[in-house]
Design a protein around this nucleic acid. Sequence first.
DNA 1: TCAATAGTGTCTCTCAGACAATATATC
DNA 2: GATATATTGTCTGAGAGACACTATTGA
Lengths: 248, 248
Amino acid sequence: MKPLQDLGEKEFIKNYDPAIYERPNASVDTVIYTVFDRALHVLLVRRAEYPFKNMWSLVGGFIDIHRDSDLESTAKRKLYEKTGINTPYLEQYETIGSKTRDPRYWSITTVYFALLHHSKVSLRIGDDAVDIKWMRITNNSVPEVLAFDHTEILKSCCGRLRNKVLYTSLPLHLVGTTFTLVELQNVYEVLLDETLDAKSFRRRMLSAGVIEETGKMKLGSRRPAKLYRRVAGTNTHFFMRNIEASSY
Amino acid sequence: MKPLQDLGEKEFIKNYDPAIYERPNASVDTVIYTVFDRALHVLLVRRAEYPFKNMWSLVGGFIDIHRDSDLESTAKRKLYEKTGINTPYLEQYETIGSKTRDPRYWSITTVYFALLHHSKVSLRIGDDAVDIKWMRITNNSVPEVLAFDHTEILKSCCGRLRNKVLYTSLPLHLVGTTFTLVELQNVYEVLLDETLDAKSFRRRMLSAGVIEETGKMKLGSRRPAKLYRRVAGTNTHFFMRNIEASSY
DNA sequence: TCAATAGTGTCTCTCAGACAATATATC
DNA sequence: GATATATTGTCTGAGAGACACTATTGA
């Protein structure tokens, strides 16, 4: 006869009652970025309920252990509810967990950030919010006090984004499916809050092998500009050298 | 009289019963790295209980909402239990959460990695393990199947470490409090699995301003070598250019 | 033809790689 | 002095910045 302390794995799991331990509450928040009007914007919702009722917060919510198969599913579900977008660029940023960040309980949130082109978005308020808006972020400062620790999270996440722009092709996800190099450069400039040299910028992007000509031109300004697209199947490019931003 | 649906924040929180929602179970795992015998090593413990009883796993455990004030506290507590070290270099790597990664429940784990010099460590088995060991990692391959999804986590974490070594001064946390440049170079070489040019390496490290001479020498080989230390109060240095590893 | 915007030519600078050369200890 | 290890000198090359220059359109 097996001793009690060695019931075997299946038996152990069957008898395991998770409710006997007090556990933190887990949620997911996503910093949804887009660029328009020559500025970085973040999607915020105004909370419908306590705590922090009526305050603006990041887009997020609890993990629904029946609907969500993994963490990213939670992020995508909430993001889809608010924007109607299914497959944005989504990257896990960090996880914050502490006894004090939520007045109700020991709380964990895993923060993602999403990059998307605003043209694809149709904003929906949903049932956990009373309002939704794009908040303009200027000079890396967040002009509004958000619910929970979201102000802090947003600030550090913007720092991370800004930093990654120095050595990656991430901003490709903030322009449309086709774009001119000037448009792409503008996005880089907005994120870095700094003007870039056109020649260096184009050399860098074109030699990275992440974009290709569509053969079409964008008209409407003076000289028409070549339209590019992302090369299908390429991942984010990591440059060997940073953009040497003057203010760093 | 206030309507029921607007009791106010304090009242709302007082009446909030977290147990009515089914929640994921949250834990923290830490990939504890050190370098000796010209190889990267990771600390593993052999699990005392189901699930995955007797299998090797990363150092980790549940968040104790009464003892741990935040996520990093959990990581530090478990790390201290196993190594006796209080203040290693600790960096959050990623958070994995899914319905399937733990056979018992929807499970989340936040993964940290720690860098330390093995001389400071005194291994202790603790009460959730039956054994503990440094596992040698060769050529970025993990030679053992670990509990849960820890094999996968360890592999990707090693990739991240290796990558960060190309553009940061992280390996400073893998050498002793004083060290020679040759020792530091050796650690870089082990992590990158590649020999580096001494002149380039020294130029890079010395111009970064993160190390300083102690004035002492390390004897014992042929020509004595200058001993350096980390400059107090400096953070990890991010180089503007990567080490141009030949195999990438 | 002019103004505006797109796009190029080309010089310099910095820092990584390559590798020969030098320095300082023990034997 | 021979040898092993630490450390330096210096040339080359890639890719970033600077900036003047050319190209292509609409008005």
